[in-house]
Design a binder for these strands. Structure first.
Lengths: 146, 146
DNA sequence: CACAATGTCTACTATTTAAGTAGAGATTAA
DNA sequence: TTAATCTCTACTTAAATAGTAGACATTGTG
């Protein structure tokens, strides 16, 4: 029960974008350098994030990427859902047809409930809240990273 | 973010044991038939469950398996943790040493929190509670399965 | 005691998924 | 025009999942 690197790296990517939000478009190359992730691999992550409308791209010279929404409007759930697929614990939660037992299955109710609780946790954590934590660390003069 | 079949099948295995708790030891062969899972594969699941003390085996002729604790004392978390490994979302939650950023990482706190909420959900669901749901279905004369 | 029923264990093989890479091509500001 | 940048298809490698084979050990019962 782990997230893959897609989810982990994807969140760091979005947080990096959020930290540089407002100015010039951010270059994938710079994110790659700051986060220690290959630029090629980042592309695999940012593409679906763009498709789903969390990130906006500016093409051509002096182009780059920006958040497509405010940091208050983007939650961990939004990011992870795109990169990791459904957050339900078992397939039948979202696609009952994948199991012929689903309509009469006791476990399905349990998995639905657990999946929903899980999603709620991620939904309640926005990029803005993470930025606040980050600012807190800087003010305290603590070492920090993302 | 899905559980593997180990976790899913493992829970069904335990629930099957719970349903036949108290009488003769239950044969793996019978669980395999009832649940439609190969006996060989079930063995891969029941072995770690035994090692960790959730299930008890009786060897030799007329042997089989029993729950090692009461259904009230076994939670989904206990079962899934054994079969799926750590329930934390990212490694650094349980093993900070896997990432050199961990001591200064903002994200780690977030992952810890989300992981804990997730575990709590699974911890609050015991085999006994699942049995109750099962009984409810039978009384309502509804079709049912696990 | 013998034997049949049952659990125990090691090791193997496919299949799928994750993780990461290569390189050509399209777009656009300067 | 050109250089910087995004876009896309396809590939490779490594690891985990899912499931199987078959020999061996233990023990209740006749």
């Amino acid at each position: 029960m782990k997230m893959s690197t897609k989810g982990r790296y994807g969140v760091r990517l979005m947080l990096d974008l959020a930290l540089h939000n407002g100015g010039e478009p951010v270059l994938l190359k710079d994110i790659a350098r700051r986060q220690g992730i290959s630029e090629k691999y980042l592309w695999n992550l940012i593409n679906p994030l763009k498709t789903v409308g969390l990130v906006q791209s500016i093409r051509g010279a002096r182009g780059g990427y920006k958040l497509a929404k405010k940091p208050t409007e983007i939650s961990l759930k939004d990011i992870i859902r795109v990169l990791e697929g459904p957050l339900c614990l078992v397939d039948c939660v979202e696609n009952p047809s994948t199991c012929e037992r689903s309509s009469t299955c006791i476990m399905r109710d349990v998995w639905c409930e657990a999946s929903q609780n899980f999603m709620k946790t991620l939904e309640n954590m926005t990029l803005e809240q993470m930025l606040e934590r980050h600012r807190g660390r800087i003010e305290a003069n603590a070492e920090y990273s993302i």
